Simulated scan of single mutants.
Amino acid sequence: MKKKFFFFVVIIALSTTVSAQLKTVESTCSKSNFASQTDSITTKQTVGIAIDLLPPIMSATTGNLGYSAQLWYGYRKFRVRGVIAGFQMPDQLIGNDDFKDLKTTATALIFDCFKNNNFEGWWLGVGFEMWDKTISSKIDNKAYDFKDYAATAGSGYIFKLYKNFYIEPWVAVHYVLNNEKVSVGTTEYKTKKIQGEVSLKVGWHF
């Protein structure tokens, strides 16, 4: 819990730094550049929250609880997100019949850029993720802990439903940077290098 609290403190600090830097960049741009944009700015700066539906739905299929929470800060067409999620993957998707009960706690820091103003429409993002994992072996009935570190890139679209309440379908590709694995006897498990993800978020911002 202390690690998660520290993670969000870091997010807030980074958000403040990003805001100051973006204001500096803004001052160097002419007003005519912004006036030429087709969409007017009604929300220049904001803070938002969101939940991702995939972790709780995936965990529910295994009879377990999952969660996902995102806190984000936006300035003009830029957004920085802090993410925490916990879920259990169905055994059928693990890819090795000698293992079961793959549980993941993920934390991430993502930077996004929107095509339009007001934090709606298309966005593209890149970032870094850390996955704390636990997996159990069917051979010795023991649980093993390991970590994965991944670079991530994704895109999505924000639909405003009512004022600043929105839904956000999105896709992402993750590339695992390390090669940690769990070996039991003659069998082993390690995370696939490249993974895809498709999901839907529900959120709101000030």
Results as ranks from 00 to 15, higher is better:
Phe6Ser: 14
Phe7Ala: 13
Phe8Gly: 03
Ile12Ala: 15
Ala13Leu: 15
Leu14Thr: 11
Ser15Leu: 01
Val18Phe: 04
Val18Cys: 11
Thr28Cys: 09
Thr28Trp: 04
Lys31Trp: 11
Ser32Asp: 06
Asn33Gly: 15
Ala35Tyr: 08
Ser36Cys: 05
Gln37Trp: 09
Asp39Ser: 15
Thr42Arg: 15
Lys44Pro: 13
Gln45Tyr: 10
Val47Pro: 05
Ile49Ala: 09
Ile49Thr: 09
Pro55Met: 12
Ile57Leu: 09
Ser59Ala: 13
Thr62Phe: 07
Asn64Asp: 11
Tyr67Phe: 15
Ala69Met: 09
Trp72Asn: 12
Phe78Lys: 05
Gly82Gln: 01
Gly86His: 04
Gln88Arg: 12
Leu93Arg: 08
Asp97Glu: 07
Lys100Arg: 12
Asp101Ser: 15
Asp101Val: 05
Leu102Thr: 00
Ala106Tyr: 03
Ala108Gly: 14
Asn117Phe: 04
Phe119Pro: 00
Gly127Asn: 00
Thr134Leu: 01
Phe146Trp: 01
Ala153Asp: 07
Ala153Gln: 12
Ile158Cys: 03
Lys163Ala: 11
Asn164Ala: 14
Trp170Gln: 15
Ala172Cys: 06
Val173Thr: 11
His174Asn: 15
His174Leu: 03
Glu180Asp: 13
Val182Ile: 12
Thr186Gly: 13
Gln195Cys: 06
Gly196Pro: 01
Glu197Thr: 12
His205Gln: 11
Phe206Val: 14
Phe206Arg: 03
